[in-house]
Design a protein around this nucleic acid. Structure first.
Length: 424
RNA sequence: GGUGAGGUGCCUGAGAGGCCGAAAGGACCGGUUUGCUAAACCGGCGUACGGGUCAAACUGUACCGAGGGUUCGAAUCCCUCCCUCACCGCCA
């Protein structure tokens, strides 16, 4: 959620930035926000002044009663009654204005940062780096879903039977590899200074709202109606909400957290060739990074996270590329996002395995995550997050890219975690 | 799930219709004293939204788990919900 104050002071800049995100009717919505905020201030003043009269009259009544002046008290009561009559409609208007202001404000996406490329579609994303070597596979190389069957690593049909499509069973060495990835990623992150958490996998409504899953992305989450809990689509949700309504000390920044969790996504309406095998699932394993930082250092933190994830991919010897997402392809809440994609050699396409974003104050404004600066003033912190990494697609590319007649050769970093150097 | 007790500021904890944005202590911040550390003493110390101001000072309103209600007036009384704790039941 953008800050009204900021919009008011930087109207032109806001419009210009919103254009980079291809947000239509920006001027209309922005001006509506400003008008509603004016209305809100006016009504607030009116309400406060009337209420102040009620309060002071009530105090007098108390004194009059104490001094035995019953008739004086009675006449003051009449006055109060009149004030209160006036207060009702003002209160009603104020509430509806505040709600409308809020509802309008949340329609505005975050402003893209200065380095965000202009552009509308994924083709306009700016590739900033590549790393690793794209392997040439031997004749007869197959996609991961065939490899999974060949080595008995994943059972998609069994998942269909027990739950439904998009909920695979990992088995044998497949399950072991999945566990190895999670452990390796977590260790890699903690040794870089991230604190390990293991969050709840269900969150309440306030938390789903806090990170912006609600109200607009309602249909993408699984909802437990009985208890009104939501299955987390990413551990970003519980992790960022740790700090909801908190005022941190400046010395506590930056906060760096990593956590494993399964992620649950309904992915309603996405079917077809892109969702085959491990490419897109309703439940998948992921290790996440979250940082809560001083506003002045968030872009530095973003670079640090990007290079951290990059090192992790390098240690897996996977061919990757890093994209600076263009305004049109970024998420609603992000100010800048770098996507990591790895090359799936058998499918011959790039698969997104991580998305690292700076949200600036967009999330923290909604969640009221602040810190006390050296002047004793409360300021919003910046929040960032990124995956390190999404397991299924890493698994898919590891299988495909490293297939040899002698089995699937795993990168050295995983040998101890997996307990072997290959799947054979 | 049942029964009981509770939810007050960063923490502990008082307050039981007006004198309460809230005692006291601790923590924290600033200062004095001090060979260092510690202690002692003095002062400060919630949040949000308004008004006001160059900025302050100052000032209004709201907030004592959440939402309603009673009342001229609610942290305090009533209702609903949420949560916590204890015991019982069930259970990895």
């Amino acid at each position: 959620m953008l800050q009204v104050q900021f919009i008011r002071q930087n109207r032109e800049l806001v419009l210009e930035r919103l254009a980079v995100k291809h947000f239509t009717d920006a001027a209309v919505v922005v001006d509506e926000v400003l008008a509603l905020d004016d209305q809100r201030k006016k009504l607030t003043l009116e309400y406060d002044e009337t209420q102040a009269k009620v309060n002071s009259a009530s105090k007098e009544i108390g004194k009059l009663m104490a001094s035995g002046d019953k008739s004086g008290a009675e006449s003051r009561k009449q006055e109060v009654a009149a004030f209160k009559q006036a207060l009702g409609p003002i209160d009603e208007q104020l509430r509806s204005t505040e709600k409308l202001l809020h509802d309008t404000l949340v329609r505005l996406p975050n402003l893209p940062g200065a380095d965000v490329p202009k552009g509308r579609t994924p083709e306009d994303n700016l590739e900033i780096r590549r790393g690793g070597d794209i392997p040439t596979l031997a004749e007869g190389a197959v996609p991961h879903w065939d490899l999974a069957k060949k080595y008995d690593l994943i059972d998609f049909e069994l998942g269909n039977k027990v739950t439904g499509s998009g909920f695979p069973f990992y088995k044998n060495k497949g399950a072991r590899l999945q566990r190895a990835l999670i452990s390796y990623f977590l260790d890699f992150n903690t040794s870089a200074g991230y604190t390990e958490f293991l969050p709840p996998f269900l969150v309440n409504e306030a938390s789903a709202y806090g990170t912006g899953q609600l109200p607009d992305k309602e249909g993408q989450m699984y909802h437990m109606q009985e208890d009104n809990f939501y299955l987390i689509p990413t551990s970003e949700v519980p992790l960022t909400n740790v700090f909801r309504d908190e005022i941190l000390k400046e010395s506590e920044l930056p906060v760096k957290i990593t956590a494993y969790s399964p992620c649950f996504r309904r992915e309603a309406g996405s079917y077809g060739k892109d969702v085959r095998g491990l490419n897109r699932l309703h439940q998948f394993e992921k290790v996440e990074l979250v940082q809560i930082v001083h506003p002045e250092t968030s872009y530095q933190a973003l670079q640090e996270m990007v290079s951290h994830v990059e090192k992790l991919l390098q240690s897996l010897n996977l061919p990757y590329r890093i994209l600076n997402l263009c305004g049109g392809d970024m998420s609603f809440a992000s100010a800048q996002t770098f996507d990591f994609e790895v090359w799936s050699a058998a499918q011959e396409k790039w698969l997104e395995v991580s998305s690292v974003s700076n949200f600036e104050t967009f999330q923290t404004n909604r969640m009221k995550v602040r810190f006390k600066d050296e002047n004793g003033k409360n300021q919003l912190v910046h929040s960032l997050n990124g995956s390190s990494l999404a397991c299924p697609r890493i698994m898919a590319t590891l299988l495909e890219n490293n297939q040899t007649p002698g089995g699937i050769l795993l990168p050295e970093a995983l040998h101890t975690y997996f307990g072997a150097d290959r799947i054979a």
